[in-house]
Amino acid sequence: MKAIPKVNTNGLYLEDTLVDDAFSGVVPFYSHIEPDVSTTVDATEPEDEPSNDSDSSLSGYIVGIPTTPGLYRPCFDLAAWSAYQSAISAAQDSYQRVLSEWQELSKEERGEMPVLESTPQPTLWIEGLTPEEIKELTKPQPQEANEVDRLGSEMVTRELEVLELRQQNEAQGAQIVGLELRLLSLENS
């Protein structure tokens, strides 16, 4: 199993879904629409029409192509996918035509067997946000201090005040000792 993206009908990423490892390509997924209960059908009358898929609506696509890293809001380019599929189909049709013509030739006229040329895959995942939306999303947000940060800041402030008071106390203590020494020297003389 592997996780692959689901997109809405516009190609915008919705969520990841788990699929078999062999899954590839793009397939639609549908959502069930509840029938309108305002119209009642008599249970004894047979339905005029057999049930069909009209009670489902296209919800988006399951995309077997990994998203491109670094996109803020990945968007799968459904038009590019459709054009890519058309190009692959056209290349295969052309190859089958050339191969059939080659096989109809005699062995002496054939030459080298034709080769199917691969169609390069375009960039299918694009950015779903505008540059303005990305700028707004990535601008720095002012952070409000939470309780722990506020208390930590107050604690640092108090510790600095205590350190300053200790230094003042030591300075005043040194002055007192100096004054006591002067007083003793005056008493001894």
Rank of each mutant, 00 (worst) to 15 (best):
M1D: 05
A3V: 07
I4R: 00
P5G: 05
T9A: 11
N10L: 14
N10H: 15
G11Y: 01
G11A: 09
L12C: 13
L14H: 01
A22D: 15
F23W: 01
V26L: 10
P28W: 07
P28D: 05
F29S: 10
S31P: 01
I33R: 00
E34V: 06
P35C: 06
P35S: 07
D36Y: 00
V37Y: 11
S38M: 04
P46W: 12
E49R: 15
S51T: 11
N52V: 07
D53G: 09
D53K: 05
S54V: 04
S54T: 09
L58F: 06
G60F: 00
G60P: 04
Y61C: 00
I62K: 00
V63H: 02
P66L: 11
P66Y: 00
T67H: 04
T67I: 13
T68G: 04
P69G: 11
Y72G: 01
R73S: 13
R73A: 11
P74R: 03
P74I: 00
P74G: 10
F76W: 01
A80P: 00
A83P: 03
Y84P: 01
S89C: 04
A91K: 01
A91V: 01
D93L: 08
V98D: 08
V98Y: 03
L99V: 02
S100V: 04
E104M: 09
L105G: 03
K107I: 03
M113P: 06
V115F: 03
Q121W: 05
W125G: 01
W125T: 04
L129F: 15
L129A: 05
L129Y: 13
E132K: 09
K135Q: 08
L137T: 14
L137F: 15
E144Q: 09
A145K: 10
D149W: 10
D149E: 15
G152S: 11
G152Y: 02
M155Q: 15
V156N: 12
E159G: 02
E161H: 06
L163T: 15
Q168R: 12
A174C: 01
Q175L: 07
L179G: 01
L181A: 12
L181W: 02
S185L: 14
E187Q: 13
S189T: 15
